[in-house]
Amino acid sequence: MSIETYLQVSELHQDYAAAVDAQDWERWINIFTDDCVYRVQSRENFDRGMPMAALSLDSKGMLKDRIYGITETIFHDPYMQRHVVSAARILRQDREVIEAEASYAVFRTKYDGIAEVFNVGRYIDRLIQTEDGLRIQSRICVFDNDMILNSLIYPI
């Protein structure tokens, strides 16, 4: 692994967190490949190989549908998120694919409340080098807690 690859993966993780925190949904969607997989799954289900997930999207089109739902149809008490993402671990790399993992913590702040820990876990990523730079082909957000507070509106 080269330092350049490590820095590209780190930059991608930070760009992802910044896009979600800013609710810049177009930027968030464009971090993924067209044939992407995005899943938010409990550690227990992931470790047991169980398919049940809190959120499972299987293409960029499904990401767009989710964002449409968030911005146009879902009624919820608005809140802000702030992501803290650890340094990445590059697990495997070949000419086309990088497999990486990073820990994350997501804090949620409601407009009339204090910040609370919303979700903690790890990203398990399959990244692809494209003409536009590194993109996420698969992101599995494996959360450590058994339950998600209230409901999952915004991406993790």
Rank of each mutant, 00 (worst) to 15 (best):
G133R: 14
E72W: 00
R39V: 00
R95D: 15
V40N: 08
Q23Y: 00
D132C: 09
N30T: 01
A22P: 04
R39N: 02
D112P: 02
K64C: 07
N30Q: 09
I98P: 08
V9H: 02
D65A: 09
R108N: 09
H83P: 02
G121A: 07
Q14L: 11
L91M: 14
T33M: 00
G49D: 01
R82D: 08
Y79A: 04
A87L: 11
D125L: 02
I136E: 03
V97A: 00
D132R: 15
F75M: 14
D94I: 09
D15A: 05
L127F: 08
Q93K: 05
S42I: 05
R89Y: 13
V117F: 05
N30Y: 12
S2A: 08
F75Q: 14
M80H: 07
E99P: 02
S138Y: 05
N45H: 03
H13M: 14
F143D: 01
P78N: 06
K60V: 08
Q137N: 07
Q93V: 05
D77K: 15
V85F: 11
F32Y: 15
L55I: 01
G113K: 06
V120N: 00
H13N: 15
Y6W: 12
R95E: 15
A100T: 10
E4F: 13
Q14G: 03
I29K: 14
Q93S: 05
D112M: 06
R122K: 15
R92M: 11
I90T: 09
E116F: 04
D24P: 03
A100S: 14
V20D: 02
T71I: 07
C141H: 00
L55F: 07
V120R: 10
R108F: 11
L149P: 01
S59I: 04
M147E: 04
V84D: 05
Q137E: 10
V40A: 07
